[in-house]
Nucleic acid binder design. Structure first.
Lengths: 197, 197
DNA sequence: GAAAAAAAATGAACTAGTTTAAGACTTTTA
DNA sequence: TAAAAGTCTTAAACTAGTTCATTTTTTTTC
């Protein structure tokens, strides 16, 4: 069976943790929905229930909240070969507090809540896949929430640059500031300082 | 079969997400190790590999790092009916950067890495248990790391008090400051301000 | 490819949170 | 139960990061 490129990408991602038979691969692919968004399009807006979890086959998106003062706070950037969505709203079916917006033309594979539930019944191995996926995400969020309180903004910027060098050139300074947790003005100061060093 | 109180506690916790047969329950319990620690004892120290993940049947512990300036940063408090450990070190078998210290006399059930791996072979249902457990933890860490950058220290304190009212009276103000991400002096100011309101 | 819109830089005045230091209160330990 | 150690409070001087306002540079749009 020949899979298209985006399907091969997600199958390769899944195969990092579990092995699927040809039949299981086809079954899995059949549960996915293709989604394309243009730059600035929303995949999700606060107030909506998150109907899908997404795997990104191409592009870049930002996941963020808007606080009471209207300031955005980016909780993650998501690029090719990563997963995104609002897991909380997806699971509880309560309205989301997040926006997910494409920062470039992006292509994704979405799985609906019904398909997600069905997946575990049909291919129980996916419990293992998600167990490992969530475990790894959890480890990096624990680290991030710890760094948020123990590092200065400058240290967080240097750390981000070291960890995601490709990303720095793909996102605006303003968005990076909203991720690091500072104002764009202070981000600008940090960058010119760090570059001078 | 009669289980002892601590075993009943962990079985009840596990039964929130999966159903186990009597035989599976016995098998599971056989993989656990009982641990007791006195106040101020360490369950783990930075530099060691985390040999166990723990379920707390009684007591309270703090999980923290010490930064380059010697300042502690608490990443979680763990009490009865919660899980704790350094998942990153436990999985990678690399030395931990965390300390886990009892803030009261505590009793725990530990599972070693070998038993954890065996558990999935013997009772695959545990993939589901951990998938759901990690999913829920992930959701709360995503929320926490977002709040860390979007709320002021005062807002984080008020939020903590609302969310974990029982805990506030069980931990010192100093430890709460190390969790919130501020100095004990500023914590003291916030508390006297909030109490005056 | 010109006009409009958004992002980035810079600087001055401000504020949330830190540092240092000292005294009062509470808990632990011998 | 006294003394030692740790925790909490208060206050003054300080600094990391914000706010607001203006100009320059880059990107988007028609």
């Amino acid at each position: 069976m020949n899979f298209k490129e985006s399907h091969l990408l997600i199958l390769t991602n899944v195969s990092r943790f579990i092995d699927l038979s040809e039949l299981e691969k086809q079954k899995y692919i059949s549960l996915l929905t293709e989604v394309k968004v243009e730059k600035k399009d929303f995949l999700l807006q606060a107030g909506e229930v998150a109907k899908y979890e997404y795997f990104i086959t191409h592009g870049c998106l930002k996941v963020y909240t808007i606080d009471d003062d209207g300031a955005p706070h980016i909780s993650m950037f998501a690029i090719e070969d990563y997963w995104t969505g609002d897991l909380s709203s997806f699971m509880t079916k309560e309205p989301s507090r997040y926006y997910i917006k494409a920062t470039e033309h992006s292509e994704l594979l979405g799985i609906s809540r019904a398909s997600y539930d069905l997946l575990f019944q049909e291919i129980p191995k996916f419990e293992r896949f998600y167990r490992i996926l969530y475990q790894k995400s959890l480890i990096s969020y624990i680290r991030r929430s710890n760094q948020g309180i123990s590092l200065t903004a400058e240290e967080r910027y240097i750390d981000f640059k070291k960890k995601y060098p490709q990303l720095v050139s793909r996102i605006t300074q303003k968005d990076l500031a909203a991720y690091i947790g500072i104002t764009p003005e202070f981000m600008s100061k940090i960058i010119s300082k760090v570059n001078r060093m």
